[in-house]
Design a protein around this nucleic acid. Sequence first.
DNA 1: ATGGCCAATTTTATTGGA
Length: 254
Amino acid sequence: MKIATWNVNSVRARLPRVLDWLASARPDVVCLQEIKCLDEQFPLEAIQEAGYNVATYGQKTYNGVAILAKSRIEDVVRGLPGEAPDAQRRVIGATIGDVLVFSVYVVNGEAVGSEKYAYKLEWLKRLAEYVRTLDVKEKLVLCGDFNVTFDDRDVYDPEAWREKILCSTPERDALKRVMEPGLVDAFRRFHDEAGHYTWWDFRTRGFQRKQGLRIDHFLMSEPALAATSAVEIDVAARDGEKPSDHAPVIATLA
DNA sequence: ATGGCCAATTTTATTGGA
């Protein structure tokens, strides 16, 4: 079973790219982030025609997450526990087969020390509290845009990014606390070396200059990891006409 | 050294992204 995560940066603007990619990559499950639309605006028919069931947790203009799956999507959970109805919509979970899958879009945080940065740390704390209630003895997969790098290997210019947004110690510590119950950065079980990125800045033409960050991750419980034979970044999907600024990441499970 | 692009809405600017 192939599970993919992709921050599409608007599912409506990206629909042709998404459909092309579904047809070529043929993932079984896709976790989308930044769909940037209400549930009723989601291009449901086109995705269903491509062979996928859909569960969305959408929001106008910003954020919004979704799960697509060729097989049944069961026991859908939307948002973090106790969230207000008007909360930013950043997490959706569902059971697909024997895997509990979450599509996660962590707060960007704007700049270290800003209000949004404080909100990012608080949001990650709430995510960590929620993960503590989940069963890591089962196949548990949290994937998505975590907006945090793990270490220098994930950053094209570590000195320039030192303690900057996406790379600061408090963010990294907050992400580690999410993983503390027993989740692992699955990509690093298969790739040790520096220079693997999932996001490249539009403004700097970062993709063409090979200047990116690895901020989209698969956090897996040990049983999920034990079933996993590969985790790969589909860099080619970041190239071409009207790409998202993120590449998809694909995990292959038995 | 700076800033660059892209998407959606509030649209010919602004907000947010990372």
